[in-house]
Computed example of a mutant assay.
Amino acid sequence: MSQFTFESSLLVRDAEGHYLPATADQILEAARRIVDLKVQRGAPFNAPEVVKEYLGAKLAGFEHEVFAVLFLDNRHRLIDYVEMFRGTIDSASVYPREVVKEALKRNAAAVILSHNHPSGNAEPSQADRTLTGRLKDALGLVDVRTLDHIVVAGLERVSFAELGLL
């Protein structure tokens, strides 16, 4: 029987009940579940720092791009968080029609768009800016406001609204 040192390692229990050091992926997945428990349906998203913290916890650490949408009611309370599209290490195909369908299905009044940059550079690309404009226009046709687009890259979070890009 081996001895474990409980220094700063986090442990997980395997199927046989043995405790093993957690991998980085296991830690990130556990953090995402905790964020879901902490921020549930009806939570207000009315401060940029709250939104950036939440989306950072949800999207940081992925090795591929993930495009997600926060669907909000007319008081900017959370209806749902949906990871809508997954891509490669440097891009994800995003379809405005699908985002509009999901917004209507959830009766959302507003959305906050988000995606990660696995490269670690949070600077919005020209493609990010173009896509955001297309999504904002498509959602606007059905009276759904686009409040922000947050890019998550490691510990960095960049807000289109704070940069004046919306």
Rank of each mutant, 00 (worst) to 15 (best):
M1R: 15
M1H: 14
S2W: 07
S2F: 08
Q3C: 11
Q3L: 07
T5I: 05
S9R: 11
R13L: 15
R13K: 15
R13C: 15
A15R: 15
E16F: 13
E16M: 13
G17S: 14
G17T: 12
H18I: 15
Y19I: 09
L20F: 11
D25F: 03
Q26M: 10
I27M: 06
I27C: 06
I27F: 07
L28G: 00
L28D: 05
E29P: 02
E29M: 08
A31E: 09
R32M: 14
D36G: 05
L37A: 08
L37T: 02
V39D: 07
R41I: 15
A43L: 09
P44L: 15
F45Q: 06
N46C: 08
N46G: 08
K52L: 01
E53N: 09
E53P: 00
Y54K: 01
Y54I: 00
L55S: 03
L59G: 02
L59S: 02
A60G: 13
G61V: 04
F62R: 07
F62D: 06
E65S: 03
V66D: 02
A68W: 00
A68E: 04
V69T: 05
L70F: 09
L70C: 13
L72V: 10
D73A: 01
D73S: 03
N74P: 11
H76P: 02
R77A: 10
L78M: 02
L78A: 00
L78R: 01
I79L: 07
I79W: 02
Y81A: 06
V82Y: 05
M84R: 04
M84H: 03
M84K: 04
G87C: 07
G87I: 13
G87M: 08
D90Y: 13
S93E: 14
Y95F: 15
P96R: 10
P96C: 14
R97I: 15
V99G: 07
V99Y: 05
A103Q: 05
A103S: 12
L104P: 05
N107R: 08
A109H: 12
V111H: 00
H115D: 00
N116V: 00
S119I: 12
S119H: 09
N121P: 02
E123P: 03
S125E: 07
Q126E: 14
D128Y: 11
R129M: 11
T132Y: 10
T132C: 11
T132D: 06
R134D: 10
D137K: 05
A138W: 10
L139S: 03
L139T: 04
G140V: 07
V142R: 12
V142H: 09
I150P: 02
V151R: 00
V151A: 01
V152F: 06
V152M: 12
E156S: 11
S159L: 05
F160E: 01
F160M: 05
E162V: 13
L163M: 06
G164K: 00
L165R: 03
L166H: 03
L166I: 07
